[in-house]
């Protein structure tokens, strides 16, 4: 039982990271119906910015995280402007292929600039301590990851529920044309959505750096895919769904590594994805909609 609880504790921080990345997927999908394949790579850019902020500028972890979030927000907006906006009325397949292109570009341009090697996240930035809680071992980095993720999610909820920007985002995702008629600037709203989603991914990237101690140009692929699975699991386009999905994926993954074969860890994520897609493609919180004829 103690071990089981321990696994849950381990899974929660990983789940929080997945949830943060999944939020970006879901927000972008909600607003422009695009699976932003490059989202995981934006997270990687965030992790790298965090790494350089820590090592070159010698900042502390919080400044590094904010720097990463700001940089990636800008990146997200640029990517949308340059690559996705011209395709807004193109077919879904064209948009998806572009997103794959952007993803490959971020990965390999990073390799081109900094080389393919793994970089070790400086330990000094976050000295790891373990606390003993009635037999449970809790690491301060787990607490840090979990707490900052939860704070960010609360801020996001506030933005979406209570601010004008949030209302505009919800309006555009419900009915873009009606939103235009109501005087909402669709371009601006989509840009903001990309900025917020990318900033969340960047934060997740820095957290992943703290969590695994390393960063590398291809680190975004697998967590990105898992977060995507989380978004689909919760019902893509649905914000609370992404959060729940993220935690489920994190817990599931630690359970499989803890009790089963860790080599199958990644396959489990894909298995879950296929299972949902076949049973209920709209996800846990989604509603099924048929095609209009």
């Amino acid at each position: 039982m103690l071990e089981f609880t321990q696994q849950i504790v381990n899974g929660l921080s990983l789940g929080a990271i997945y949830a943060l990345i999944a939020l970006g997927y879901t927000m972008v999908y909600g607003i422009i119906k695009l699976i932003n394949f490059a989202h995981g790579d934006i997270m990687m850019v965030g992790a790298l910015v965090g790494y350089f902020s820590l090592t070159l500028l010698g900042t502390n972890i919080f400044v590094a995280m904010v720097a990463a979030m700001l940089t990636c927000a800008l990146f997200g907006v640029l990517i949308e402007k340059i690559a996705y906006r011209p395709l807004r009325n193109a077919t879904r397949i064209a948009a998806l292929i572009t997103a794959i292109g952007v993803s490959l570009f971020l990965e390999y341009f990073t390799i081109f600039l900094f080389g393919p090697a793994q970089k070790v996240f400086p330990q000094s930035a976050f000295p790891v301590k373990a606390y003993d809680l009635g037999g449970l071992s809790i690491l301060n980095k787990d607490v840090f990851v979990f707490a900052s993720a939860v704070i960010l999610m609360i801020i996001l909820q506030y933005i979406i529920k209570w601010t004008k920007t949030g209302k505009a985002m919800r309006a555009v995702s419900l009915d873009r044309e009606a939103a235009v008629l109501m005087g909402i600037s669709v371009d601006k709203t989509i840009s903001i959505t990309f900025a917020i989603g990318s900033a969340l991914a960047a934060a997740a990237g820095v957290m992943l750096g703290v969590y695994y101690n390393t960063v590398n140009p291809l680190m975004g692929i697998i967590p990105g895919l898992k977060a995507f699975v989380a978004a689909v699991l919760g019902g893509i386009g649905i914000i609370p769904g992404a959060m729940v999905g993220g935690f489920v994926m994190g817990l599931l993954e630690t359970m499989v590594s803890g009790y089963g074969n860790s080599l199958y860890r990644d396959a489990v994520a894909f298995g879950v994805l296929i299972f949902i897609l076949l049973i209920k493609p709209s996800g846990i919180f989604g509603e099924d909609t048929g095609e209009k004829v």
Partner: peptide, 11 residues
């Protein structure tokens, strides 16, 4: 790396 960057740009 350049090859993949080129692929990406082509896409």
């Amino acid at each position: 790396a350049i090859r993949m960057v080129l692929y990406a740009l082509i896409l």
